[in-house]
Design a protein around this nucleic acid. Sequence first.
DNA 1: ATAAGTTTGTTAAAAATTTGAAAAAGTTAG
DNA 2: CTAACTTTTTCAAATTTTTAACAAACTTAT
Lengths: 209, 209
Amino acid sequence: MAKGDVSLSVIKRLPRYYRFLGEIKRAGIQRVSSGELSKKMGFTASQIRQDLNCFGGFGQQGYGYNVEQLYDEIGKILGVHQKAKTVLIGAGNLGRAVAAHMSFEERGFNLIGIFDKNEALAGQLVRNLPIRHIDGLYDFCRDNSPTVAVLCIPSESAKEITDELVKLGVKGFWNFSHYDIAVNHPEVAVENVHLSDSLMTLSFHVNNL
Amino acid sequence: MAKGDVSLSVIKRLPRYYRFLGEIKRAGIQRVSSGELSKKMGFTASQIRQDLNCFGGFGQQGYGYNVEQLYDEIGKILGVHQKAKTVLIGAGNLGRAVAAHMSFEERGFNLIGIFDKNEALAGQLVRNLPIRHIDGLYDFCRDNSPTVAVLCIPSESAKEITDELVKLGVKGFWNFSHYDIAVNHPEVAVENVHLSDSLMTLSFHVNNL
DNA sequence: ATAAGTTTGTTAAAAATTTGAAAAAGTTAG
DNA sequence: CTAACTTTTTCAAATTTTTAACAAACTTAT
C-alpha cells in the first residue's frame, strides 16, 4: 500500500470518484459496479477498477463495491477527515469568495486565519473569521503553526510570501495567483489552480469546434 | 495545420506557454530558445519544441524563437483576440469574484450579461454590468446571442440551465458548479473547473509528503 | 566567405497510461 | 448443494505521451 508509487493521473481522479460516490450514497444506493460507475462518470470500467486497485481490493467479485465503504476508503486516502490548519492570504474578491464558498472543513482543512495587506479590510468578518493585516502573519504562524496556505494574491507578491511561509513551516499551497509556484523543497506540496489557463483552454475549444 | 489531431495534453499546455512568453516579453526579451524556456517553465526542451511544432515551425535554427512572434501565434491559436459573447450565471460570492477578477477581454471573451435568481441582487453593478434576474435570460439570449456561459451556480440547477442554454445556442461552458457537465452534442465545449477536486488533491499530497 | 557554434525540426526510443481479456472469487436462484 | 451468472482482480496488449538523439539550418565571429 505504498502511496509513492501511485501515479498522479490516478490521484487526480480520486476526488471525482469521491464526488460521484457521495452523490450515489446520498441517493440511498448501497452497491455499485464498475460498469455502472463507468456509465455515470464517463471513465471506462477497466480504468475504474484499475484505479481503485492501486489502493487495495475494495470490491467483491459478483457483487461490486459497497458504496458507503468505498466512499469512506477514498475519503481516508484523500485525507478529508484531517484538519490541516490553513491560512488564506489575500482577501480581495477572489480570496473572500474562496473563503466563503469552499467547504474547507469537509475536505481536510481547517481555516484558521485570513490575511490581507489592505488595512481597510482589517476586522471585517469572512466566515466568522476576522481579516487580519498581513503584518501579523509571522506572529500568527509562530503561535498557531498552520501547515497549509491558500494564496489569493497578485503574482508579484506570490514568490516572496511563499518563501516566507515555507520557512514558517507551511507544507502545502493552494495557489490562485498567476505565478507558478515551484518550490525546491521536496517536502512541500503545491496545487496551482490557474483559472486563466482553464479559461483560455475553453477559448481554444470554442474556436475549434 | 489540422487542429483536430493535436492532443489535449498539448492544448492544455498552451496557456502556460502564453503566460510565460507574456512575462518574458514584458521583461523586454526578444528571443528565447527552447532550452531557456525549459529552465523557466520546468518542461523539457524537447517537449516544448514538439508542442510548438504541432502548430507550425515558429522557430529558427541557430536562433530560437522570436518572443513576440511566438506570443502572438499562440495567442491566435488560443483565440485570445476573439470576442465571444459571454453570460455569467450565478452572482453569488464566487460568481461576482469571477466576474470581477478574471480578465475575460484579454482571453477571447466579452462578458455581456450577469444573471442570478436572487431578486435582491438585481440592478447591482459588477464590473459595470447590472446583475439581471434569471427570468430575463431567455429574452436576453434571443436578443444578444451569447456563445459562451460561465456557470457559478449550485449543482442542482446546473443540468437544467445547461440544457436550456444549449438550446439557446451557447457553444461553450465554463463550469464552476459541482456538477459534471457532460453534453451529448459534439458541438459544445465544456471546461469543468472543480475547485474542490483541486483542493482534495492538495489534501492528498499534504498527507502523503 | 568560411568555420565554429547554436538551436530547431524530426525521427526514433522509452515511459506512462489506458484499454482489453481471461482467470479467480463471490452471488443468487433453483 | 449445485450451476449459472456477475463482477472483481490481475495480467497483457495497445495506445498515448514524453524524452532522447541526430541531421539540417541558421547565426555569429573571424
